[in-house]
Simulated scan of single mutants.
Amino acid sequence: MEYKSWMCLICGWVYDEVEGAPDDDIAPGTLWEDIPMNWMCPECGARKEDFEMIQI
């Protein structure tokens, strides 16, 4: 499986599927599609649809 990264278009915060977001109760290895729709960017509060997949 290939993990991806997603960047907030508002503030530039990056969600990495490998790392997850443990501070926000999202375990490492959690795929983007498995994050709840009501989740928000921990930096700026942007909605999930304000993120875009990026290639690193």
Score class of each variant (00 low, 15 high):
residue 1 M to L: 10
residue 1 M to H: 12
residue 1 M to F: 04
residue 2 E to S: 10
residue 2 E to P: 04
residue 2 E to Y: 05
residue 2 E to D: 02
residue 2 E to T: 05
residue 3 Y to I: 05
residue 4 K to V: 04
residue 4 K to T: 05
residue 4 K to D: 03
residue 5 S to W: 04
residue 5 S to V: 07
residue 5 S to R: 11
residue 6 W to K: 08
residue 7 M to K: 13
residue 7 M to W: 07
residue 8 C to H: 03
residue 8 C to Q: 02
residue 8 C to Y: 08
residue 8 C to F: 06
residue 8 C to N: 03
residue 9 L to A: 01
residue 9 L to M: 11
residue 9 L to F: 06
residue 10 I to V: 12
residue 10 I to L: 01
residue 10 I to T: 08
residue 10 I to F: 03
residue 11 C to D: 06
residue 11 C to N: 07
residue 11 C to I: 07
residue 11 C to W: 05
residue 12 G to A: 06
residue 12 G to F: 10
residue 13 W to D: 12
residue 13 W to C: 09
residue 13 W to K: 12
residue 13 W to P: 10
residue 14 V to F: 02
residue 14 V to E: 06
residue 14 V to S: 08
residue 15 Y to I: 01
residue 15 Y to S: 00
residue 15 Y to R: 00
residue 15 Y to T: 02
residue 16 D to I: 09
residue 16 D to K: 07
residue 16 D to H: 09
residue 16 D to S: 06
residue 16 D to P: 00
residue 17 E to A: 00
residue 17 E to G: 00
residue 17 E to M: 03
residue 17 E to T: 03
residue 19 E to D: 12
residue 20 G to V: 09
residue 20 G to D: 12
residue 21 A to W: 11
residue 21 A to T: 04
residue 21 A to N: 12
residue 21 A to G: 10
residue 21 A to R: 06
residue 22 P to C: 14
residue 22 P to T: 07
residue 22 P to I: 01
residue 22 P to H: 06
residue 22 P to D: 08
residue 23 D to E: 12
residue 23 D to P: 01
residue 24 D to L: 03
residue 24 D to A: 09
residue 25 D to L: 14
residue 25 D to T: 10
residue 25 D to S: 15
residue 25 D to M: 12
residue 25 D to Q: 13
residue 26 I to L: 15
residue 26 I to V: 15
residue 26 I to G: 08
residue 26 I to A: 11
residue 27 A to N: 03
residue 27 A to G: 00
residue 27 A to K: 08
residue 28 P to N: 07
residue 28 P to R: 10
residue 28 P to L: 07
residue 29 G to S: 14
residue 29 G to Y: 14
residue 29 G to Q: 15
residue 29 G to A: 13
residue 30 T to A: 09
residue 31 L to Y: 01
residue 31 L to C: 01
residue 31 L to T: 01
residue 32 W to R: 05
residue 32 W to H: 03
residue 33 E to F: 13
residue 33 E to I: 15
residue 35 I to A: 08
residue 35 I to D: 06
residue 35 I to N: 07
residue 35 I to L: 13
residue 36 P to D: 11
residue 36 P to Y: 11
residue 36 P to N: 11
residue 37 M to C: 03
residue 38 N to I: 09
residue 38 N to E: 13
residue 38 N to C: 10
residue 39 W to Q: 02
residue 39 W to E: 00
residue 40 M to E: 11
residue 41 C to P: 07
residue 42 P to M: 06
residue 42 P to V: 05
residue 42 P to I: 01
residue 43 E to I: 13
residue 43 E to Y: 07
residue 43 E to S: 13
residue 44 C to Q: 00
residue 44 C to D: 06
residue 44 C to P: 07
residue 45 G to E: 04
residue 45 G to Y: 03
residue 45 G to D: 05
residue 45 G to A: 12
residue 46 A to D: 04
residue 46 A to S: 14
residue 46 A to Q: 02
residue 47 R to C: 10
residue 47 R to H: 10
residue 48 K to I: 08
residue 48 K to R: 15
residue 49 E to N: 14
residue 49 E to R: 15
residue 50 D to G: 02
residue 51 F to M: 01
residue 51 F to C: 00
residue 52 E to P: 09
residue 52 E to V: 15
residue 52 E to W: 15
residue 52 E to S: 15
residue 52 E to N: 14
residue 54 I to Y: 08
residue 54 I to Q: 07
residue 55 Q to I: 12
residue 55 Q to Y: 15
residue 55 Q to D: 11
residue 56 I to W: 12
residue 56 I to G: 09
residue 56 I to A: 11
residue 56 I to R: 12
